[in-house]
Computed example of a mutant assay.
Amino acid sequence: MTPRIDHTTTSGTFSLDGQTFDVENNAWVVGDDSECVIIDAPHDVAAIRRLVGDRHVLGVVCTHAHDDHVRRAPELADAVGAPIFLHPDDMVLWNLVHPDREPDRELADGQVIEVGGASLRVLHTPGHAPGAVCLYSPELGVVFTGDTLFAGGPGATGRSYSDFDVVVASIRDRLLPLPEDTEVRTGHGESSTIGAIRPQFDEWVARGY
């Protein structure tokens, strides 16, 4: 069967450092007609379950542990009977949201998750969050960047546990070398391509975006 990407947008809030903001998050489901992986668990479990349908879920893979990406992870994982995957460097953020529930599996740089005829290679891309990861699928020509990289610039680094220089290095060293036609599917907002983003990178760095 042919792998595909399903998508929905959910609305909710993001809270950190004593502030709360309204946000809209992308949720992605990757797989074929029989099995899939869920990327992030924002806001609306029912909407994500509609994307999954009756497929077997291999895991809820968290790109990072800001609350708008993981707040529903335990509920979603329990509903679909799947483990939660998170990079261990993001436990400091996870514990702010779920102090009484740990993720089930660790993500590691270079790890490959096979699902529905596609592979998702884990790229550790710290900066927006210490354990942030992106998921690259060469078969689908897609990289899921969470909040590390957007169509308009790097992920925000103005809050606790983030670092602008580190996220810039992650984008430069791990993402920009991908093929230029690679689609960039983000945690918020519109998609782009590596080829469209690459010419803007030096300008972003110069202005400390």
Rank of each mutant, 00 (worst) to 15 (best):
H98D: 12
S11E: 14
R4V: 09
R55N: 08
P103A: 15
H64T: 03
V37W: 07
Q19T: 11
R105Y: 04
R4Q: 10
G110D: 08
V23D: 06
H87P: 05
D54S: 15
G53K: 10
P88G: 13
E102V: 07
C36T: 07
W94S: 07
D67R: 04
H87C: 08
A47M: 07
V60E: 05
T20K: 04
D104F: 09
R49A: 08
T10D: 03
H43C: 06
H56L: 11
L96W: 13
T63V: 11
E114T: 11
H69T: 00
S34C: 05
D104T: 08
R50Y: 06
T13G: 05
C36N: 06
Q19P: 00
V29T: 05
Q111I: 00
V70D: 02
A65F: 02
A79H: 11
V70N: 00
V70W: 01
N26R: 12
D22S: 14
A82L: 02
P74H: 05
W28V: 01
R55I: 03
R72V: 00
G31Q: 04
I39F: 06
D109Q: 10
Q19V: 13
F14A: 10
D67I: 03
R55W: 00
V112P: 04
H87S: 13
E35W: 09
P74M: 08
N95L: 14
V37D: 05
H98E: 15
D89R: 12
D6F: 06
E102D: 13
L86W: 03
D104A: 09
F14R: 08
F85Y: 15
R55A: 07
V112Y: 14
E35M: 05
T9L: 13
Q19E: 10
G59H: 14
H98T: 15
Q111F: 02
A47I: 06
T8V: 13
H69K: 02
A65C: 01
A46F: 06
N95Q: 15
S119F: 14
S119W: 09
N95M: 11
A65N: 01
G81L: 11
F21V: 08
